[in-house]
């Protein structure tokens, strides 16, 4: 950009900030000025930049509200994670139900035919995948809800917690898939059904974890059918 008389709009606009803060060479400054004299659009842009700089300089720095920095970064690991405990309990319940191949009847008539072949395994995996997606969405939603309720400085901790819980659940689901694959013979149909019931209930409402705990006690006492 030197002493060219016909600087175009793009060139002029790219030098407006330098023009305003006075860091242009004399030649460039003159060239930009010549362009601005003839170009209403670029003069308007120059005025906009100048106005906006004035407006920006009026911002009064706000103080950061008090927050627990150390807790947010370092102490959350030691926090008794309610959700993690609940999550672990739920996983145990699921595991036991699957291992015991407990039959839980539902009214919505869910049916899959598992003959123990490869296709049925894929089917089950697809279901588990869907459930996992659903669950992730729900976990994200509750994270957003928590955010909106602005649980003060605990938000971050909760996010971390939910993240941990989510990862843990991933792990559980992976384990379940291999577990189900290993026990895929006669009882596959019932296993899949109870697995679906338990997982979807767990997803729909974490309070169902308690009900599942009770269900588990029943299972233990009368050995198989709910």
């Amino acid at each position: 950009m030197t002493e060219s008389n016909d600087m175009n709009c793009e060139q002029a606009k790219s030098l407006l900030f330098e023009l305003i803060d006075g860091s242009l060479s004399a030649a460039d400054r003159d060239a930009v000025h010549r362009h601005l004299d003839d170009c209403a659009d670029c003069s308007a842009a120059q005025a906009d930049v100048w106005h906006m700089q004035t407006v920006a300089s009026r911002w009064k720095t706000s103080r950061v509200p008090r927050w627990n920095r150390r807790g947010a970064f370092f102490e959350s690991r030691g926090f008794p994670p309610l959700l993690q405990i609940a999550s672990a309990c739920a996983s145990v319940v699921v595991m036991v139900l699957v291992l015991a191949q407990v039959r839980i009847s539902t009214e919505d008539g869910f049916q899959v035919s598992f003959g123990g072949d490869v296709a049925s395994r894929a089917d089950l995996e697809a279901q588990l995948h869907d459930l996992r997606q659903e669950q992730l969405a729900l976990i994200n939603q509750s994270a957003d809800r928590l955010t909106n309720q602005q649980v003060a400085s605990n938000q971050l901790m909760f996010r971390t917690l939910l993240e941990a819980s989510r990862q843990e659940r991933h792990e559980d689901l992976r384990n379940l898939v291999s577990l189900v694959q290993d026990t895929q013979t006669k009882q596959n149909e019932r296993t899949a059904e109870s697995l679906r019931y338990v997982l979807s209930n767990q997803i729909e409402d974490r309070r169902n974890i308690q009900q599942l705990g009770q269900a588990l006690k029943l299972v233990a006492s009368d050995g198989g059918t709910l």
Partner: peptide, 18 residues
């Protein structure tokens, strides 16, 4: 300035720093 309110600003601040 980006979010327009102090609660979201605090949330973004912590999120970014984390």
């Amino acid at each position: 300035r980006m979010s327009g309110n102090p609660d979201d600003a605090m949330d973004i601040l912590q999120d970014v720093l984390m």
